[in-house]
Each structure stands twice: as C-alpha cells, then as structure tokens.
Design a protein around this nucleic acid. Structure first.
Lengths: 182, 182
DNA sequence: CTCGAATGAGACATAGATGTCTCAATTGAG
DNA sequence: CTCAATTGAGACATCTATGTCTCATTCGAG
C-alpha cells in the first residue's frame, strides 16, 4: 500500500484548516499513516507546508486555466473561476492563515502569478465597461481570496451549504448586497 | 513605569497578525517589555490569546454600538459599522487565523452576540426592501469578517491604502463589482 | 511463492519554547 | 528622601514537538 502523496496532502489540509497548529502526529493520523512514513515523504513540518503551498498554487492555476478567464463576459468568467476554485477552498483557507508564507524573503512566485491573472480579469471587466471603476482590481482580487476563505470556513462550520459556495461568493462579489432597482 | 495592559495587547496583536507563531520573547520585545513582565500580566500564551480575544470582542461590540445599526438605512448602517471596525481590523485578522478559538467546547459567546447583531442588520435591510433576498444574512455577516480581514492584510502588505478601508469594503459588500446601469 | 521495498510501532536524543525563580535596578507615591 | 512595588535580565528545569533510528510486519511485483 504505497502512500498517495497527494491524498496525504489533502488529508493534512483538511485537518490543518481547522487546527493549524496540529501535531505532526495528528496530521499523520488524519492521513491514515504513521508519523515515520509522513516524515519519509515530507522532511519536516516546513517541507509539508511548502508542499501544501505548491499543491494549492497548482490547483488554483489549474482552476484559472479551466475557467478560461479571457472568454466571454468578465462576470461569467468570475463565476466560472469561483466554481473551479471550490474544491481547493479548504486548502486555500489553511494557506491563507499560514501568514509565515508571505513574510519571508523567498515567497513562492506562484501567488504573484495568480494575483496577476485575477487582476487582469477585473481590469478587463472594467475596460469593457462591465465593472465599476471605483473598486481597484487589486482589491477585488484580494477580496476573492477573502470571500473564498470565509465561505470555506462557513461550510466547515455548517453555516453555509456547500452547494451555495459558488452562488454566494459570485453574487456578493459581482452584485453586492443592495437590491437592484431593475 | 507601570505596564499598560491594553497597549501590550495592541502591540502583541500587531506582531501576531503578521507572525501568528511568534515566540513569547518576540511578543514581549514587540511590546517593549521583558518576557518576565509579559508573563506576570498574562499567565502563558493561552491566557494572552484569550485576553486578545476578549479585547477584540469588546472593541467590536463598542464599534457596533457606536455605529447605531438600527438607525437610518441599513446600507448607511453598514458603512458606519465598517468605519468603526477599522481600528480593530488588525486584531480581528489575528483572531480570525487563530482557528483554535472556534473549535473547542467553550467558545467565547461574544462571537455569537456579534454575529447576531450583524445578522439582524442584514435581515433588517432585507425586510426593508433594501437588500437582496438571495444572499442569506448569515453569509453576509460572515463575508464582513472575511472582507475586513482581507483589507487589513492588504493594508499591512501595502497593497491597499488605509484611507480606502471603509470605502472598499462597503462598496464591494453593498454594491458589488458589476456596474450599475443607472 | 520469493524477495525487495515500503510501512507501522516505538524508542531515543535533541532543540526550542515555556514557566518559574532570583536579584539588582528603576519607578513613583507618600 | 524613603520605601514598597514593579520591572529587566538572566539562570534554570521542564516539557513537548520533532527528527532519527531500529526492527518486525506487510505489501506487491516478478
């Protein structure tokens, strides 16, 4: 029974999202393996977190690619993006709380690439006259992360249905709370 | 030079927001006191985090009280609330990442009280015909936290101007990204 | 079946954070 | 000024998570 590296990372993320300070022993148990094996695959906690970061970035890049952000209206692209991001929301919630990842000198450049894609999408929406100009694309990009993490957290707490993930985020992000007087 | 307990907590929050795993020695230095004194005022890391939680809840309750959420239109109440919440955003960002606070059996009931106030505000907006019915008040309340934390983080990263805090959050939360065809 | 590779269980030493204590220096009220 | 209270610096023991190692067991390819 050879260990599935990605599955271990998924299980680890599932636990660490709720208990970011979990022991490596707890992480191993959550993944259904022994601490020794966990250490054979990831040399220390730092390596594990880095692997989770790499996985998170890779999943997000896949999601953005699948969403084809350049196609159709920007609003629809945002909706597709949120939908594709949903499976990675838990992992993102963990990484978001791991603020050490964004402090050091060698931050993973993957985040900058993702940011650039998001910013480009919102900028495209503004230039097409779809989106408001008062909200800066950088802030909108940041808000996407914030809302995704909030939604992931709400789901894990039972306050939000998993099926509502895409709708709730996209409707809030795009339309806001105020009623349209159509 | 008697130690100002609240100031110590503020300094601690300022550091812990960016480095949640900081040593008590680092926390003490950030607060300008010695580790011994820090320990005299807060018996251990756990007590320190609890004190930060209490402070955060108290500040939020003050902010909501000052904002007078029952007065005027719900949208204006939301704007006032965000504005009053700004000084506590950093502290909230730290507490938000301290997920251990929300897992145990004895969660501070202050969070539930705050949630109730937020939910009531959004429900009032819906019942007054101001807010859309598609977005559940619970999700809107959760989104407030997410956006406040995102904005606090963006500001500390230099990606968002502190002056834009209230506007960016309120405009996104209330109006969304899509342009109104007024 | 056979055997090499991977795993699980556990022991072990280590490192780093933490809690406690002491003592000298500083503060501030009376 | 005087003195009690508070603080800073540092030593010290402890504790927990971690990394490493060993050995028996299990898995799976050939």
């Amino acid at each position: 029974m050879v260990v599935d590296r990605v599955q271990v990372l998924r299980d680890a993320a599932g636990l660490l999202m709720r208990k970011s300070g979990a022991t490596l022993d707890e992480v191993a148990r959550a993944a259904g393996i022994s601490r020794a094996t966990l250490n054979r695959h990831f040399a220390g906690r730092d390596a594990l977190v880095r692997a989770l970061e790499d996985l998170g970035i890779a999943e997000c890049e896949d999601a953005l690619a699948k969403a084809q952000l350049e196609e159709g209206s920007a609003a629809d692209a945002v909706r597709r993006m949120i939908r594709e991001l949903e499976p990675s929301a838990g992992l993102l919630a963990f990484l978001y709380s791991e603020n050490q990842l964004f402090e050091g000198d060698e931050q993973n450049e993957g985040w900058a690439r993702l940011d650039a894609n998001l910013v480009a999408l919102f900028r495209r929406g503004q230039e097409a006259g779809e989106f408001r100009l008062e909200l800066s694309p950088i802030w909108l990009a940041e808000a996407v992360y914030g809302l995704v993490v909030s939604a992931a957290w709400s789901i894990s707490e039972g306050r939000l249905a998993r099926n509502d993930f895409t709708t709730m985020i996209a409707e809030l992000l795009l339309g806001g709370a105020v009623r349209r007087d159509t």
